[in-house]
Structures are given as C-alpha cells and as structure tokens.
Computed example of a mutant assay.
Amino acid sequence: MTIHIGAAPGDIAQTVLMPGDPYRARWAAETFLDTPRLVNEVRGMLGYTGTWRGQPVTIHGSGMGMASLSIYANELIRDYGAKTLIRIGSAGAMQPHINIRDVVLAMAATTLSTPSSGIMRELSFAPTADWSLLHAAWQAATTRGVTAHAGNIYSSDVFYDERPDLNEQMTRHGVLAVEMEAAELYIVAARYGVRALAVLTISDHLLTGAAIPSEEREKSFGEMVEIALQAAFPDA
C-alpha cells in the first residue's frame, strides 16, 4: 500500500495499462479482462487486475496531466514492481493526413516541461517509447487492419492552450498529435529501466475541428485497448 494506491502486495500485475479516466479503466477491465477485480479506489482512482489470454494485467487510471500520471507511474513501478506500462488514451490530431478514430503510436514525446524537468535541469531529455512495445503495437494494428501512425507527439502541460503559434510550429515539424501524459511516462520508465508506450486514439482534430461524439468514444477506443494488450503479450 502506498499513499495513493491501496492495493495489497501482489494485487498489481507487472503489465499495467493506464487510461487517464478512472471510469475508462473500469470499462476496459470489465470489457477486456477475465475475472477483473477492484484493487484500488483511493481518491477515486480506480485500478483493476484480471487476466487477458491467461496473462495477468492491471488497468489503472492515471488522472489527467503529467503531474498526476507521474505519481501513479512512480508508485506502480517502485512499490508494486510494474515492468510494462502502456498509456491508453485520446489525442488531438495535428496533421491533415490523420483522421478521427485513427491510432497514433508515440515513438517520442515533445514537451515544454514535465514534473521531471527539475531532475534534468538544463538537459533537453528526449522521452522515447520502448522499441519492442512499439514494434509489437505496429504489428498488432496492421494485423487488425487499424489505420495507425507512428511518430512524435506533443505532451502538453495545459489543456486550454493559448499558444496557436506553437501548435503551428509543431504541425510544421511533423508532430502527429497532442495529449497530456506520455512524456512523463516515458521519462519515469527510463529512470527505472522499464518499458513504456503510449497508444492513442484520435478523438478530435485540431485542424478540422472534427471530433468523436461522446457517446461513441468507448466503442472507438476498443481497438486501442486490444492493440495495447497484444503489444504487451505478442505471443499470447
């Protein structure tokens, strides 16, 4: 048990999927895992552990933003022995060739700042995904016939952005999409020597204004969860 996670020793699997929304964690666990059981609900941040094709999996909410995710990623790795952490979440497209409901696999994550910036000081650290997870996720998406894009994303530390000039430069430099957590996840994973990946569903488009209706989001996110699970267990 930690300050933010009430799970008992052995309750957390070595493979953890991390949606931002705790209710999406519950939906994903009940939809994709066999015999899921609630292992954490401290501060309303839900975590469930079950199995997928016989493999132990925990699906645990991260909260919104890098500061929140950093808390849970640190404790899941340091105190519960998590070895593979995959963010599953939504993102806003920043390139015209990316469409609503496409999946983006984050090879790298550009950011202005993260909670780990104080450690890095003057160093401009480049947060990147684990290659084995990225490769397996790409293969899973291809096998499933899902339109996927792999490349650089932007992890923003604010939701209501007031920098259209910055967005323009990121679009110009090929950044695929924007979200709010992956960069810190990749840095924390690097610090502890574990694997991390962000698998993201495009829920809205910064250039066109298109968006998935709220009532359709869970159905649209299903492919993302399956890709994440297959990436974690490519031989299952």
Rank of each mutant, 00 (worst) to 15 (best):
A126E: 13
T143M: 11
A129F: 03
T142G: 00
V103A: 01
L185S: 06
R87Y: 08
L176F: 14
I98R: 06
S113W: 06
E184D: 04
E179W: 07
S156K: 04
L123F: 12
L112D: 15
F159V: 02
I86W: 12
I98E: 11
R144C: 02
E179T: 07
M170T: 01
A182Y: 02
Q95T: 06
S116N: 14
G145H: 09
R172F: 05
W138E: 13
V178P: 00
F125R: 04
W131D: 07
A108E: 14
G118D: 08
A126I: 15
V188R: 01
F125S: 10
A91S: 15
G174R: 08
A148P: 02
E162A: 09
V158I: 09
A148V: 12
A182E: 05
G92L: 05
R191Y: 09
T110M: 15
H149Y: 05
A91I: 07
A183E: 03
T147R: 12
L176G: 12
G174K: 07
D130S: 15
I100C: 05
I98L: 09
A190V: 02
R163E: 09
V178W: 01
A137M: 03
M107D: 09
A136T: 10
M180F: 11
E179F: 06
D161E: 12
A93Y: 09
R121A: 13
A182V: 12
L166Y: 14
S116T: 15
G145W: 09
P96W: 08
E179C: 06
A129R: 07
L133R: 14
H135Y: 12
